[in-house]
Write a protein that binds this DNA or RNA. Sequence first.
DNA 1: CTTGCCCACTCGTCTATACGAGTATGCGTG
DNA 2: CACGCATACTCGTATAGACGAGTGGGCAAG
Lengths: 263, 263
Amino acid sequence: MTSSIPVGLLGALDPTSDRAVFRQIADQLREAIDKGRFKEGEKLPSEADLVEHYGVSRMTVRNSFSILQGEGLVHSEHGRGVFVRPRPPVRRLASDRFSRRHREQGKSAFIVEADAAGSKPEVDSLEVKEERASHDMSARLGSVRRVLARRRRYLLDGRPVEFATSYLPLDLARNTPIAQPNPGPGGIYARLEELGHHLDHFDEEIRARMPSPAEVKTLRLAAGVPVIHLIRTAYDTEGRAVEVCDTVMAADAYVLSYQLPAT
Amino acid sequence: MTSSIPVGLLGALDPTSDRAVFRQIADQLREAIDKGRFKEGEKLPSEADLVEHYGVSRMTVRNSFSILQGEGLVHSEHGRGVFVRPRPPVRRLASDRFSRRHREQGKSAFIVEADAAGSKPEVDSLEVKEERASHDMSARLGSVRRVLARRRRYLLDGRPVEFATSYLPLDLARNTPIAQPNPGPGGIYARLEELGHHLDHFDEEIRARMPSPAEVKTLRLAAGVPVIHLIRTAYDTEGRAVEVCDTVMAADAYVLSYQLPAT
DNA sequence: CTTGCCCACTCGTCTATACGAGTATGCGTG
DNA sequence: CACGCATACTCGTATAGACGAGTGGGCAAG
């Protein structure tokens, strides 16, 4: 007995079916996972086990696993096995997360929230730099040539969950606390208001897509995990766009939540 | 010469690199696509071309393609080739799309919008049914046992882009126009208000994830296309949840847009 | 008991081959 | 000219084998 894994939880192949063998195997594994016969974090039967159980070649089994991996259901660890991917705790982003009320406290929303949820928050790879505005950024900020870019990465319990860059018109941010790595209590929105730019409203654009290889690296994303791409523009009471925040989030770690009036 | 495709757009492998051969090939193809050397909808070199160009086995080339497919960059067509996946036109969903103003016209927002964008809208697989509320739905609607479920699928130019189900408490919807396949001008929100349920606000929850096999089928999704899962709850002025709309959208066809006051 | 090594097991990468099935093109037949 | 078929080219599926590399447990030496 080379395996202590209950391969018996799986059925047999239907040779009369039109469905490809590797799809049938993937279907059976998926069903077993969905029905909880394999639990979160649990090890699936090894490739060798499945080769023996189904009487197919190893590449066929690997093909099945690659389907499930693409669906984000499992992940493999070299030398250890293939595991049911655990659902990470999600972070809820409410639409009122930038209200002045929340800004009063000294700590950032991210830290407060994470502490409340019992996870350890970190912010790293902070970079504050002057840059040429990209074409898109220039359009969003109103024909601005140069911008101040503030980049940072957010982690929960050591896992990167979000990578964000704020862009501000350089004429507005230069030589202000906003250009400091730590802009102080209440973050850059508090500083903007102190500088006389009273915030009026935000526009948020939301997309979802598969990550680029760079994003996979930065967010240490597992296969089959999309990203949520959120672009927020902050406008002051004079209608000027004073900041654009470009955020890429690991989709399995987030639920966005908005409350809309029924006007 | 078996191929008219300019394989010459691609470089050579680096045998000293630690990076796996199939990843190097995928990198080169990705770069060529990103730089526009292969354009949207264009056919990539065939597997056989790449086998010859790189001097590797076919499975290695296929492995490279499968990476790009998982990233949503390419799609393959049996018997035709592998193509750069075209970016479909996106549908923008604005946060004011349910305002009473938009409800005045007879036609649904989806139809109006699509006509304006010059695409042909369709709504199909309409199903109106009484059901037992799922645990989650019951919680959202306030301990409701039975619901009226309204299912429909939206298509643009023949392509399915969205699948939505509205759930309403049965005691509220039974024997009203809401239980009709076509609820009339302004949709069910107009009918709800006529029935005395004045809408106060909506809550929207947004997630992104890879689609289930059923969703792949319903939305005819290409590999590497995530879905946006939106759950909207409508509340009346008495604080009662009067509808929950569960929507699954092809992520490559949508940009969601919200405007938030900076209170 | 602790340390270090070996080995079994695991997934990762790659080759070579075979056959099947969908697509498109061109050519020959009617 | 129109139709249908042969054919070449495409990707899809599956097999069999090889070697590499990460992991972890057990065993032997110290």
